[in-house]
């Protein structure tokens, strides 16, 4: 019996035993969020759905490796989806949707609730929102755009109108600061 109280962990364990109903339930619970993750990176619904499909086939095939990953099920699945989406947008022949990217950047700049506020609104941010707030705006923006929308260094450089080296420095310093801050607060 599928129980609403089954945790994602339980579902994963049953998937490892080749329980297809548990897998259907896992899909039902997580596909909405994972599709959104893919969609933000590839920016096209049909591509995002293909990535979701490939990812779930992959999840089913590798669910026995999950226990080794030692992360939360959603984190593990998100990483699979993000990796596929990133591979997809880094394909040499990928047609880039530049106007979309421009719009994206503008949105980031204009948005009154910035990523940090959105994080807080999402209510699951732990310390990440506080720590993102400690970064400079440029560091925060570069990291968020790269993580959420899959922008590469050069795409960030093009779209933020800064030299490549500057972008790389922002990201590196931002990441180091972020890690320092999260560790100081006892998070991951």
């Amino acid at each position: 019996m599928m129980d609403a109280a089954d945790s994602l962990d339980d579902l994963m364990a049953r998937c490892a035993l080749r329980d297809q109903r548990a897998f259907a339930e896992l899909y039902r619970r997580s596909s909405g969020r994972l599709l959104a993750v893919a969609m933000r990176i590839v920016r096209r619904r049909d591509w995002a759905e293909d990535i979701l499909q490939e990812s779930f086939v992959n999840i089913w095939n590798h669910v026995t490796d999950y226990s080794r990953a030692k992360s939360a099920p959603m984190t593990w699945m998100t990483a699979i989806v993000r990796n596929r989406a990133l591979d997809w947008v880094r394909r040499p022949k990928h047609e880039t949707a530049d106007e979309d990217l421009d719009g994206l950047i503008e949105n980031w700049e204009d948005d009154t609730p910035g990523p940090a506020q959105r994080l807080q609104a999402a209510g699951e941010a732990g310390h990440l929102d506080d720590c993102l707030r400690e970064l400079s705006g440029q560091q925060r923006q570069s990291i968020a755009l790269a993580y959420m929308h899959g922008l590469s260094h050069s795409e960030l450089a093009n779209h933020l109108g800064e030299p490549l080296g500057t972008i790389k420095t922002w990201i590196r310093r931002g990441l180091e600061k972020l890690r320092g801050c999260l560790e100081a607060r006892g998070a991951a």
Binding site: S71, A72, W76, T78, R82, L119, Y147, L178
Partner: peptide, 8 residues
């Protein structure tokens, strides 16, 4: 992955 996951 754990650190950045909340952004997802």
């Amino acid at each position: 992955q754990e650190r950045l996951d909340p952004l997802s």
